[in-house]
C-alpha cells in the first residue's frame, strides 16, 4: 500500500541540487542589509486616516484591501471546487451521544463569543476577520464532529448566500464608495472604521461557514 519513492540516484541528485539551492539562497539572505524598516514608516504615517488603530488590520482591510477581497474569492472558489468534486452530504438523522453533545453545548457559545471578541478587537490589536472566522469555523467543525448537521431549511440558497456574504459585501462597499471618493475601495474617512467593521463582520461569518463547508466535504443536502 505504501507507494515506492524515487530511485536512489534520483534522490541523491535532487538532494544535491537542493543543498546547492539552499546554500545559495542563504548566502543571498545573509547579504541583505541587516536593518530595514520596509513599509513600516509609510503605514505609520497613514494610520490616522485608515479608520482603524491596528497596523495589520489597516493593511489587510484598507491599504491592501483589494488583495484581501481577491483572497476571499480564492477561499470561496476552493469551496466551490470541493463541492463540484465530492458527492453531496446527505441529511443525517444521526444523534450525537450524550457526552459528545454536552461538550459543544459548553464550548460552542464560548467560541462564538471569542470570535466576536476577536473581530471587535481587530480594530485596535491583534485579531480581526480571519482569526474570528477561523474560530467560528473551528466551533463549526466541533459541532460537525459530534454529528450535528445544518438544519435543512438553512441548506440551499441560504447557505450559499452565507458563503458569498463576505466577498459580496466587500465588492458592494468597494464599488459603493466610488461616487464619494472617486476611487475603488477608497473609504471616506468619517465612515472608514464602520465600513471596515461591516466588511469584517460578514467576512468573518463567511470565512467561518466556508471553513466548515470545506471540512464537511460535499454540499449539504444537494440533490445529485
Amino acid at each position: 500500500m505504501t507507494p515506492r519513492g524515487a530511485a536512489p540516484w534520483l534522490r541523491f541528485s535532487v538532494a544535491l541540487l537542493l543543498v546547492g539551492m539552499f546554500a545559495a539562497l542563504a548566502w543571498v539572505l545573509l547579504g541583505l542589509p541587516p536593518r530595514s524598516a520596509g513599509l513600516q514608516p509609510q503605514v505609520a504615517a497613514q494610520m490616522a486616516v485608515s479608520g482603524v488603530d491596528h497596523p495589520v488590520t489597516a493593511v489587510l482591510l484598507n491599504f491592501r484591501g483589494y488583495d484581501t477581497l481577491l483572497e476571499m474569492a480564492v477561499l470561496l472558489l476552493a469551496c466551490l471546487g470541493v463541492w463540484s468534486l465530492s458527492p453531496a452530504v446527505p441529511p443525517t438523522d444521526e444523534t450525537p451521544g450524550a457526552m459528545l453533545a454536552a461538550l459543544p453545548r459548553q464550548l460552542v457559545p464560548l467560541m462564538v463569543l471569542m470570535a466576536g471578541y476577536l473581530l471587535w478587537r481587530g480594530a485596535t490589536g491583534p485579531g480581526g476577520a480571519f482569526q474570528a472566522g477561523a474560530v467560528l469555523g473551528a466551533a463549526g467543525v466541533l459541532l460537525l464532529l459530534t454529528g450535528w448537521r445544518l438544519p435543512v431549511r438553512w441548506q440551499g440558497w441560504r447557505l450559499r448566500l452565507l458563503l458569498i456574504a463576505g466577498v459580496g459585501m466587500f465588492v458592494l462597499v468597494a464599488l459603493a464608495v466610488v461616487p464619494a471618493s472617486g476611487v475603488l475601495l477608497g473609504y471616506p474617512l468619517p465612515v472608514a472604521g464602520t465600513l471596515i467593521l461591516l466588511i469584517e463582520a460578514l467576512a468573518g461569518l463567511s470565512i467561518g461557514v466556508t471553513l466548515m463547508a470545506l471540512f464537511l466535504g460535499g454540499e449539504p443536502g444537494a440533490s445529485r
Binding site: A73, L77, R160, I164, V167, V171, A174, L184, G186
Partner: peptide
C-alpha cells in the same frame, strides 16, 4: 486624490465577472 480622471472600465473588467460568479453561484438555476 487622483487629480486626473481615471476610467472605471478596467476595474469593471475585474468586478463584473466576480459579481457574475457570485450571482451564478447563489441563483444556480
Amino acid at each position: 486624490m487622483a487629480a486626473e480622471h481615471v476610467s472605471l472600465l478596467p476595474v469593471l473588467l475585474i468586478f463584473l465577472p466576480l459579481i457574475g460568479a457570485l450571482l451564478s453561484f447563489v441563483f444556480r438555476r
